[in-house]
Amino acid sequence: MRPYGIVYAGVGGQGVLTASSIVGEAAIRRGLNVVMSEIHGMAQRGGSVVAEMRIGNARSSIVPEGEADVILGFEPVEAYRVAHKGGENTTVIMSTDPIIPFTVSVGKETYPPVEELVGALQEKFRVVTLSAVGLARKAGNLLTANVVMVGALTALPGFPLDREEMMEAVKVRVPPRFVEVNLKAFELGYEEVSRCL
């Protein structure tokens, strides 16, 4: 089986690595091979965070350019930044809530309109948009936005793990007192993408 490639892109503090570790946990529980790169530079907070994952028969934890099955964008600009990982069959799931970098708020750079980013990605990929923050608020805790994204990912046709397996992994990977609210967030993300497809 060709390895299934996922590129997770967001900003430090959004829980990108927790989200990817939930998927990794589910893959291991199913008995699938999984490799992942989590590279973070000097920034303790607020910098770009990218995790690359391949599920299946792969040794390299870097998703080759063109071979991402999914780009899971936790933030619009960050989703756009990893577009070179996409190919002909890539789906982009993008949370449309921007996090404005400091360089923009002090007027040194500009943040492009989110519609423009979505438009450019739509020219090449299937794009599903949602507001992870909005759905997390609906679930009852803003900090569950990352698990909304995991639910959204799970709803994609072709994603190699099923809903129940993923929910088990959520239970294992989040602190016990937050399990319920995270499962709700997962459901909301899952439903949102199921509806869009």
Partner: peptide, 21 residues
């Protein structure tokens, strides 16, 4: 061997350099 993915239309996006917290 084929190298590289698809090219997406160029949009200038802001950077996120590391900053003091």
């Amino acid at each position: 061997l084929p190298v590289g993915g698809v090219k997406v239309r160029e949009i200038t996006v802001p950077s996120r350099p590391p900053v003091l917290c």
